[in-house]
Design a protein around this nucleic acid. Structure first.
Lengths: 195, 195
DNA sequence: CGAAAATTTGACATGACTCAACTGGAGTGG
DNA sequence: CCACTCCAGTTGAGTCATGTCAAATTTTCG
């Protein structure tokens, strides 16, 4: 794999802690690179999730398809963010989620066995995944709070404000699905926002 | 502190991993017990969150008060669950949340410094907090999914089904605030559910 | 027991969805 | 370069879900 892409991952970790040489060595042996075309998936409904994925370039969406066939976006994952389905990864349960590229993308992946091996051999890697997960939890909690206390209009403004780079790169249909409204209704919110 | 309550915490951890004697010793020195009356708070808006809290008995609610004075319940924490405000705890930021007992309760608390000490001296404790946080993340994600894809009625039925013991012990006003509807509307949903 | 809080009810207002139609831009093949 | 299709985005009419407010009733807790 391209060493510059592994380097991006290492730089990312350096923001959290000084990565030991032994961990770098482990990462070098187990990190897999994968290129994705637009609309290509790394996880499909009913499959087992076997990887932890780090986005080097591009944007992925994680969504659920309900019984009526409607898609609901749970998460966008762009550069230097992680994505996986924890429920499926840890409990060996078939996933109800799908992870798909919205743009041509490059990701790094760590297989489940290698991930567990990293946890066992690098306590600092383990710790950093704890911190990363804590931050992800905070973000989800903030989002729940929005849904129980704010209107769709407020949620939209919040999204624009929090993810300015995403809102330029993602279609409004995807944004509507993320904040939990129909594309038609988002359209009226957008008119209101520019008025 | 009562050793039986520390024992409950140790039993809890044993479900995850075999606790080493050195960690037990550390816990014995730093775990604080606290009794709470109904409506008593362990964290108030504007304060710094300095503890990780484990509920031995009772139920706490974590809520946010919006600019109109309305409370929105983010979380209920009952026996053998953890609660804290990660954002405030790690970033030393004043919290926007409040954690209050819904029943007379007994909790165990670990101060921030002791918590960091535990992380440093017990990699398995660190790991288990990672796993606990991952599970909490999954739960929040499921809740977000509900809000972007399900009706209030479906969310209510889901709550009843997922937390049968909570729904008996908590007033409907609290449940309404948790699922994100007004108490009046929850009342109509309840009528529908028993019809 | 008595005060405070929880729950219910009903009339009315508004937020958000559905469906169908229309517009306009981005690719694609001839 | 044009004609074509496809998809994103918008608009509007009608409808349903949910909120607001006020009041009456019941339950809970000190």
């Amino acid at each position: 794999m391209s060493s510059s892409r592994l380097q991006q991952l290492l730089n990312y970790f350096e923001d959290y802690w000084a990565v030991e040489e032994s961990t770098v060595k482990l990462l070098r042996t187990c990190v897999l690179e994968r290129k994705l075309k637009r609309k290509e998936s790394i996880l499909g409904e009913g499959q087992l999730c076997n990887h932890l994925t780090f986005v080097v370039q591009g944007i992925l969406k994680t969504f659920h398809t309900d019984k009526n066939g409607n898609q609901h976006n749970l998460q966008f994952t762009s550069e230097n963010k992680w994505v996986t389905d924890f429920g499926s990864l840890y409990n060996n349960k078939p996933t109800e989620l799908c992870i798909t590229a919205l743009e041509p993308s490059i990701v790094l992946q760590i297989k489940k066995e290698d991930l567990f091996n990293l946890y066992d051999n690098s306590p600092m890697f383990d710790r950093n995944m704890r911190i990363i997960t804590e931050n992800a939890f905070i973000e989800q909690q903030e989002r729940v709070l929005q849904h129980i206390s704010a209107t769709a209009y407020e949620r939209y403004l919040y999204f624009l404000n929090k993810y300015p780079n995403l809102s330029n790169r993602i279609s409004n249909i995807q944004i509507a699905s993320y904040i939990g409204v129909t594309p038609e209704f988002l359209s009226t919110l957008r008119k209101k926002a520019t008025a």
